[in-house]
Amino acid sequence: MVAIRNEIDKVADSPASVLITGPSGSGKDVAAQLLHQKSRRAGAPYIALNCAAVAADLLESEMFGHEAGAFTGATRARTGRFEAAHTGTLFLDEVGDMPLAMQAKLLRALETRVVERVGGMIPITVEVRLISATSVDLLAAIDRGLFRSDLLYRLDVIRIEMPPLADRPQDIPLLVEHFCLTAGAPPIRFEKAAMALLMDHPWAGNVRELKNFVERTRAHHPGEVITRDALPRLLRPTGASVVGGSVVGGSATRVTETMNDVLGGTLPPMTLPQLDPGHGVDLRQLIADLEQAYIRAALSACGGTIAGSARLLGLQRTTLIEKMRRLHITPSA
């Protein structure tokens, strides 16, 4: 992390585009903000847009703005994120989830430094420093035809790679101390044995999961010294999960119960049909039904966001998007 901070110090004033990579929850947005704060643009706007959190048909308007009457509901003109970030920094989070049609428009804007509002014909010159972030393997996405290689070359001028928390367990005590101090009164403290257990935990959700754990611990044990014995009730279980669209780690009923705990009880009861020599099962339909139920439940629990749903389901965002298209599921489903 010291090396990453040094790299940020060196490139902060460069106008070149920066691509920040790393798993979800590893601090990509923090790195982007630090790049802006360390630059000469620190006094100018810092505008962020999560590409995975905006419906595909609204993303162009969010990015470039729109004129009054451009589409149903556009009762007045609106400035886009590019215009709002003029002379400052534009941060595009989860850029790997951007639809291909929008990728072409972003590429043109980066090449010309000119944007046009939806429904408008007047070119608007913008001067922004672009920082983008993704937890998607963009080279693999290019191979699958989901991301443009020419756009990657535009975004990936300077790359900063954020490592997963599991690769830097020595940072965990420092991060825990920081979160304990910033979480507000009353403070908590961890015994040495408890901290050792935290350093051995996999932290699949990375720094974000660690921060949530500290907040949860403080809520349950305000002002206390946390022992090792208290941790099993506070750490999230890592047993049953859904990986690559398949159920792993137990029966369908038990996995459904576990997922219902996470998703707030939005999954219907599920039981696997028994195989009988006289009656087969439609395995393809069974898998499709399971995928439908889990994806819809995850979308419901995450307010329709692709990024959050993919994290719940243990999928890459591009994989989830492909499944949703195949199953005709929309983010609002």
Rank of each mutant, 00 (worst) to 15 (best):
L181S: 12
N212P: 04
A133Y: 01
P173N: 01
L139N: 13
C180P: 02
L234C: 04
L174W: 05
A140H: 04
T227K: 11
H221M: 12
G184E: 11
D171W: 11
L138Q: 00
A194Y: 05
L210I: 07
E177S: 13
L231K: 00
I226L: 02
R233H: 13
N212M: 09
A141M: 01
D167I: 08
S135T: 04
P186Y: 07
E161H: 00
R228M: 03
Y153S: 14
V225P: 00
P164Y: 05
D143M: 06
L175K: 08
A185R: 13
V214N: 04
L234F: 02
A185E: 13
W203S: 08
I188P: 12
R189H: 06
A141G: 10
P186N: 00
R216E: 15
A141Y: 07
A230H: 07
A133L: 02
I172T: 04
L231P: 06
D167V: 09
R159W: 00
L155N: 02
R148P: 10
D200V: 06
S149D: 13
M195D: 09
D156C: 09
L139T: 12
P237E: 02
F179H: 07
D171R: 11
A140P: 06
D150E: 11
G223M: 13
L139K: 03
I188T: 08
L155K: 09
L210H: 00
I160T: 08
R233W: 03
L235M: 13
D171C: 09
R154W: 03
H220D: 15
H220Q: 14
E215S: 09
R236K: 13
N206F: 02
M162D: 06
I158C: 15
T217W: 06
T134V: 09
K192V: 12
R228A: 13
P187I: 14
C180G: 09
P237T: 00
I142D: 01
H201T: 09
S135Y: 00
L146I: 09
L139V: 15
L231C: 07
E209D: 04
S132D: 01
R216C: 14
M162F: 07
P186M: 03
V214W: 04
R233L: 15
M162S: 07
S135H: 05
